[in-house]
Nucleic acid binder design. Structure first.
Length: 177
DNA sequence: CGCCTTTGACCTGCGC
DNA sequence: GCGCAGGTCAAAGGCG
C-alpha cells in the first residue's frame, strides 16, 4: 500500500555494510559484485517480498565470525559464556519480516525494556540448521527494523525463485552503472 | 494434516 | 538472595 521504498535518499554506500561473512551468505558473490559501486543503486527496486533494503546499517556485535563454535546447550551447559557471533543490521521497512529466502519459524516473542515494540525470535526450520534471528523495531524510529542473525546456515537458500541472489541480481540490473 | 504463530511459563544471568 | 530482563520451551490453536 504505502510507499515502502521511498525511504532511501541516502547515497551512502549501504552495501558495504553487509554483515554476513562469506560462509554465511550463499550469495555473497553477488554482494562482492556490487560492493564497489553501490552508491546510489537502490532506486527502482521493486521486488515485492523483500524490498525494503534501502538503508542497511550494520551493528555487528561480535566482530569476527567463527564458524565452528562449540554448541551452547540451551542453558544447561555453561562451559563457555560466549554465544555464537551475532550480526545485527538495521533496515528501514514497514514490515517486520524480511524474507531472506530461508524458512523461519517463530519460537518466541518478548517485550523489551525501553521499547514499545516486542522482539520476535525466529529459528531456521531446516533440519540441523539452528540459525536464529531476532527482529525488533525501534521505538525511537519505528520505521527502522533491527534484524539480528545468530549462527550460520548450513544449507542453501530454500526459495530459489525468491531469494537474496535473485533480488540482488535485480538490484544490479537497476543500478545505473 | 502438517506447519506455523501465539502466549504464558520457565530458565538463566546479572546487578543491587 | 531477590528481582528484573532477556531468551527459550511447549501446548494450544489457526490456517492453507
Amino acid at each position: 500500500m504505502e510507499n515502502y521504498q521511498m525511504f532511501f535518499p541516502i547515497s551512502s554506500s549501504a552495501a558495504s555494510a553487509y554483515p554476513f561473512p562469506t560462509n554465511m551468505a550463499p550469495s555473497s558473490q553477488v554482494f562482492n559484485n556490487f560492493h564497489g559501486n553501490s552508491s546510489n543503486g537502490f532506486l527502482g527496486l521493486k521486488t515485492e517480498s523483500f524490498i525494503q533494503k534501502p538503508e542497511v546499517k550494520e551493528i555487528v556485535q561480535n566482530g569476527s565470525f567463527v564458524g565452528s563454535e562449540t554448541e551452547v546447550k540451551s542453558g544447561k551447559k555453561k562451559e563457555k559464556k560466549i554465544r555464537k557471533p551475532r550480526y545485527a543490521f538495521q533496515t528501514r521497512s514497514q514490515v517486520d519480516i524480511l524474507d531472506d529466502g530461508y524458512r523461519w519459524r517463530k519460537y518466541g516473542q518478548k517485550a523489551v525494556k525501553n521499547n514499545k515494540f516486542p522482539r520476535s525470535y525466529y529459528r531456521c526450520t531446516h533440519q540441523g540448521c539452528n540459525v536464529k534471528k531476532q527482529v525488533q523495531r525501534l521505538t525511537k524510529d519505528e520505521s527502522v527494523v533491527v534484524t539480528t542473525y545468530e549462527g550460520m546456515h548450513t544449507h542453501p537458500i530454500e526459495k530459489p525463485s525468491d531469494n537474496f541472489e535473485h533480488i540482488l541480481s535485480q538490484m544490479q540490473i537497476y543500478t545505473p552503472f
